[in-house]
């Protein structure tokens, strides 16, 4: 609520936001769904950064993940299936003062919205993009998603998916102008919090793939990882995510990885025998489209009128 400034004087903020200030309606996700934890992390990161709720916009598409805005007490936009990213980019393009979050899922982002996924990465606008990847279409009741493992029977593929799953990390890391790529699992709260916090602090599009449990339709996906932590590998580096030793101890595999090393990140993503967790890639200097597209915001009415007349002059006789 207040703190000491550099000159030892007392700083009193006129508004201090608690978790409650960011919390909207009561979540209607299933019991045991990984989304609850992600939502809690988002609330906490908002609270910790003290961003104004009225300056925060949570944008989503359609799916279980995309219910997230309703559980925020900020501005929100729950739009069309697959189309969260264009809307979010549009918000940011002429309102760079707003803090924009995107909640999307494996179907929403990697399937119906795949073009926008690649392009949002290219645009690299300052947006925090959380992909809730549970490997299944939940809201429409158990259809194969791009990341459904082949041995999981679904209502559209009762004998299992016909094709090997899409690897979102290799695709993402293959796009030019990416600036922040991370992967976490929903059930490790400290890692989850630290990575989402870093993603939020990053200036550019932060892509966070969150392996998220759906206990109702595909319990096996999360369970397999929880039962065998050796299937995961924690990425460590002084420029990566920092977690306590007791968190590190949960992961038998560690790999030292410099987030500025794109080739190494791609190699990690390519190796599907073990799931890398942490920051795969971070480049704070990639060009940002929100800066390019927000030109002219400071123009006065008189300047605009003068510009208008100049434009008309070009066609005058």
């Amino acid at each position: 609520m207040f703190g000491l400034k550099g000159d030892w004087s007392l700083e009193v903020k006129d508004r201090y936001f608690t978790l409650e200030d960011y919390s909207g309606a009561e979540p209607r996700w299933c019991t045991g769904c990984g989304d609850h934890g992600i939502l809690a992390a988002v609330h906490r990161v908002c609270r910790d950064s003290q961003i104004k709720p009225e300056k925060t916009v949570a944008v989503s598409g359609i799916g279980c993940s995309s219910r997230l805005p309703h559980y925020m007490n900020t501005y929100g936009f729950h739009g069309l299936h697959g189309r969260a990213l264009p809307v979010a980019c549009g918000v940011k393009s002429r309102r760079p003062d707003l803090d924009v979050w995107v909640a999307t899922g494996d179907g929403d982002c990697f399937s119906i919205g795949a073009a926008h996924w690649l392009y949002a990465l290219r645009y690299n606008m300052d947006i925090t993009m959380l992909v809730f990847d549970n490997g299944i279409y939940g809201l429409t009741k158990k259809q194969t998603s791009p990341t459904t493992p082949m041995d999981v029977p679904t209502n559209t593929h009762p004998s299992g998916a016909l094709l090997p799953p899409l690897n979102p990390l290799t695709v993402t890391l293959g796009v030019n102008n990416i600036s922040f790529v991370a992967q976490i699992v929903d059930w490790n709260a400290p890692l989850r919090h630290e990575v989402i916090k870093m993603a939020h602090e990053h200036k550019g599009t932060s892509f966070v793939r969150i392996i998220q449990r759906c206990p109702v339709y595909v319990e096996s996906i999360g369970k397999r990882l929880q039962d065998e932590p050796a299937r995961m590998q924690l990425l460590t580096h002084e420029n990566g995510v920092q977690v306590d030793d007791n968190v590190k101890r949960l992961f038998p595999n560690h790999a030292e990885h410099d987030p500025s090393d794109l080739a190494a990140a791609r190699a990690l993503a390519q190796d599907e025998s073990v799931l890398p967790l942490g920051i795969l890639y971070h480049n704070p200097d990639a060009p940002r489209y929100d800066i390019m597209s927000s030109v002219g915001l400071d123009m006065s009415v008189d300047e605009k009128l003068a510009g208008m007349n100049q434009a008309l002059d070009n066609f005058a006789i």
């Binding site: 739009g79 549009g90 073009a115 002219g296 123009m299």
Partner: peptide
């Protein structure tokens, strides 16, 4: 007049982008 032309990745994204700015 301080404006910007956004060439989007497709027609859907174009209107989505415009809707985002309008909403804001």
């Amino acid at each position: 007049t301080g404006g910007f032309v956004h060439q989007a990745e497709d027609e859907i994204a174009a209107i989505g982008f415009a809707i985002g700015a309008s909403y804001a």
